[in-house]
Every structure is written in structure tokens, then in C-alpha cells.
Amino acid sequence: MLVEIKNLRIAFSTPTGWAEAVRGVSLTLGKEKLGIVGESGSGKSLTARSLLRLLPGNARVQADRLAFDGIDVLAASERQMRAIRGKRAGLILQDPKYSLNPVMTAGDQVAEAWRAHKGGSKRAAAQAAVDLLAQVLIRDPARVAGSYPHELSGGMGQRVMIAMMLAPDPELLIADEPTSALDATVQAEILRLMEDLVSRRGMGLLLISHDLPLVGHFCDRVAVMYAGRVVEELQAGELTHARHPYTRGLLNCMPRLSHPEARLPVMVRDPAWLAP
């Protein structure tokens, strides 16, 4: 198993005590595509980031098991973590406008990731960066390599991000809402690109999104999170058989062209969902 998560709990210290954001999540992931879906604040990003130990300093992380390829992430040294981050597991963030360093060229940022794990000369890294940019289907990779993030469009920025995270050939790619900040047409392109690269390299993919049908389309399995818990786990093809009322509610509130409705149904939340 690439990823094993058992009873993960994440809490933040607040003036009134500990606020639990993730409350007992269990997941496993092999070399497959797993989608995590849930609304804002359901704990999906925290779950993913805890795997690389990238949570802010005031977070308390507890778990019966939190492991990447058998390495206990909670007990690992900082050095061991650095050997996982980037090299074995990449992380793609939501908005390239914020997630790329504004004062470094795209090429330098990709080259830096390549060089951090593969070593070699600066020139070799720069050349590798241009090749990587070509692999994410950027038409003019040399020009983009010399550009700063503010000179790139959102879709282009996200391609740079993907190139950067794929540079050291990781086994797992975590994508934290990789398309939420992009236009609808670009979203599909980026997802197809990611799917293609992940399939071709035989990597695992953890795709976080709040778009259930989209995740169902791209992933093998889907975990639905609500209020810090996984409320339902399904094979992607079985979305229509979802049992949990929250999952059904999410599916029902998608407008459909084939059955236009005057009003979309409103999700009625049951406090019982919060109980384990």
C-alpha cells in the first residue's frame, strides 16, 4: 500500500480549546486514482497535507497509522520527510497565482525541483526543466521557462506546477483542487493531462475536489468527506448507487440539461451525520 491512513485526527489549538477539523479518517491508496470529495472545511485538504506533514505549526495530528509506503509519517525525521516530499510524492495546489513563487521564473522553479532530488549541474537542470515543460504540453517551453508566474495564464501556471511536481518522478501525486481556480474549458485539459501522465507513469493519484461528478469521472474510487469524517467510499462507477444522504444530496443538487428543473433541491443536513 502506498498510503495507509487509520483513524487520523487533526485539531487546531484555539483560545477556547482544541478544535477538531479531521475526526477519524481512514483511507488506503495503492497505485490507483482516489478522489476525495467534500465541501469546504470538511477536512479533505488537511488529510492530504498531513500525509506530507505540511500542516501549520499549531496543528495537532494524531493517528493510529499514518504511513507512506510503510514509513510512519508521524515518527519520521525531517530528513526522511524531505526524501518523501517532492521525490516520492508531489503536491499540486489550487491556484498557481499563489502557489508559484512570484519572483522566480517558471523554469527556475521546475529546475529547482529537479535538481533537489536528481542533483547535477544547473545547466542540466535548466535543460531538464524545458523538457518537462514540453511534457506537460506547453507549446513554447523555452519561452515559458523564462517567464515569471504573473506573465502566465492560470492554465499555463498549473501546467508549470504539474511539471515541477513530476520532475523527480514521484510515485504519488496529490492534487488539492487543482482546477478550482481555472476556467471550465481549461479545467478539462488540465485533468486530462494529469490523468494521462499519472496513468502513463503508473503513479498513484489523490485528487481532492468539491466536484463529485468530475471526480467520479476521473478516479477509480471516491471517498466522500463530511465534517472531518469519511461518510462513504464508493467505486467511481457506482456513484448512482450512493447510500449516504449527504452523497445523494451532492449528486442531486447538480443541475442537468436533460432534466431541467425550476429549482434545485436544497441539501437538508441531518445532525446525525456528525455522529461516527
Partner: peptide, 20 residues
């Protein structure tokens, strides 16, 4: 967020702090 990116790339703490 770019600091999270830099850490996620597996860079050393010093590189994250100074270069990024």
C-alpha cells in the same frame, strides 16, 4: 502558498526560508 509548494518540493528549511 508558494512556501507550501517549496516545502512540498522537498527543499531544505534554509532554502525554503531564504530563497523562497
Amino acid at each position: 502558498e508558494f512556501v507550501v509548494t517549496a516545502k512540498a518540493k522537498g527543499l531544505s528549511a534554509a532554502t525554503v526560508i531564504w530563497r523562497h
